[in-house]
Amino acid sequence: MIDTIAVAGLRKCFAEVEAVSEISFSVRQGELFGFLGPNGAGKTTTINMLTGLARPDSGTICIGGIDCTGKPRAAQYLVGVVPDESNLYPELTGFDNLCFCAALHGLRKAERQARARELIDIFDLTKAAHRKFGGYSRGMKRRLTIAAGIIHKPEILFLDEPTTGIDVASARQLRHLIADLHRAGTTIFLTTHYIEEAERLCDRIAFIVSGRIVRIDTVDNLVQPMQVKNVVQLTCENALTDIEARLSESFPDLKFNDIGKGLIRVEGDAPIRVGPLVRFLEDQGGEVSEARRMRPSLEDVFVRITGIEADAMRKEKEKAGGGQ
């Protein structure tokens, strides 16, 4: 696969503070790459360097095959950027904002108006299209800002904390839209502090802490080393008496735990075959409605690797930028 973004030894200091410390990574064409880290980790500084809003102190950046080292704005025609805060014009309407952003990329009037209408429909902003952007709710502002970022159909999209500070329904809608863009072939560079969002959306993830990338891999590969034991959770619709002892007797290699409310947790050193367990429970009069293979979450991995509690990271960000 071709690398659409290739970064090597990128470093950026602000006075005495090293915001980004010699990071290297690459993003493949069509990939949704997550950049995950707490506040102040260097996520936005990295995006700024990649998009030409900041000049690296050292290192190289190559975007879409264009060497942007020393020419930070050279590849801007290839990229769309959705910043962490909406930066559209409050005195223009939603529709006019989109048309203006399209004009910045050289789209002709008929073309930009058609594209603006299309995106306003997709982002469910039809009723607010001719209202001033300054009067939009947070969720609507985020949606219009993302629409503005893709108005020129960029090959590469940088999304900086797209769901921070918006309500659950809007965040969910945005995730669907991001997934749709990814399916359509857009290369997406996503920074977020919501671990579950990264886990759900991203092909590969980089953990960045204090300006350093501590790990890059696919979600599966990140989670795999944590998966020391195989765990399955069975759900029975009816309660069975003394089922834990009966199961232990019949399956001595497995460890059972009757959690209550019909939930039975099964642990084993080898992969667990669910069929015999379900048949056994049904023979005992149980009505098994679900068998789910449990695996460690990306959050467990993040905490293990970085030592930062995910919940603390989320609360810190929400204090700064409003809750999701």
Binding site: L53, Q76, Y77, G106
Partner: peptide, 15 residues
Amino acid sequence: KNRSFERLLLAPIPL
């Protein structure tokens, strides 16, 4: 100040 100038700096236009 309100960061909308960044949008112009991100456009593929010579400074």
